[in-house]
Design a protein around this nucleic acid. Sequence first.
DNA 1: TTCTGTAGTCATATTTTTTAGACTAATTGA
DNA 2: TCAATTAGTCTAAAAAATATGACTACAGAA
Lengths: 105, 105
Amino acid sequence: MTTENKSVKENKCPAEGLLKLLSGKWKPQIFLMAVNGPLRFNSLLRDIKGANKQSVAVALRELEDFGILDKNIIKQKPLHIEYTLSEKGKSLIPVFRQLEFFCEK
Amino acid sequence: MTTENKSVKENKCPAEGLLKLLSGKWKPQIFLMAVNGPLRFNSLLRDIKGANKQSVAVALRELEDFGILDKNIIKQKPLHIEYTLSEKGKSLIPVFRQLEFFCEK
DNA sequence: TTCTGTAGTCATATTTTTTAGACTAATTGA
DNA sequence: TCAATTAGTCTAAAAAATATGACTACAGAA
């Protein structure tokens, strides 16, 4: 595949990675919850019925890696970690609105 | 779960099903290819490097079931089947554009 | 100092998704 | 009539995603 790799152009969808990320377990929920305020690991575990540590941890890590969530260590009273929507994450809100709008049709 | 299932409201994301659907194997590619014209099963199999029958068949069926693609039997010369974007499917184009736009940032 | 809550990790299941390859069945061209 | 093309289905295997439960490590309260 040195020269003739144009026969079938890499028509990979640019949004594929994003779609994969967002469709992962608990990710849409977590994203929507993050819109309403900072999130914490154990609270998510309690609030999302049926959630387990591992997948919540994976969801938070991947959303953070993608730059959608920010992870902040809060050095106050109980000393804990908060996940908040990054600017990039906020710019995803209208995308979700569009997706939801589409679903209601 | 007859009465007290409101403690933690079903905060399921409405777009979750759509995200799952669209993120499935080959679906974004197939969708984008459908934007450019009608698709045929064997052509997809040839054109998408690494695709296999089963997943292409599943992708086409699910996109059809969701109302995104229309399946048309063409009773002409070679007699074949064409998959085209439905109206609903077309209304998804701006959603993809937004997703792609987001990815380029 | 022991117990609770914080936020996880890790190894191992189980489940779901995807792949590989054989097979079917109708149509068409030689 | 034989072979190819069309559009798949089916079963079984492999790979990827998710779940379970044990464990770690730190902070603060009793």
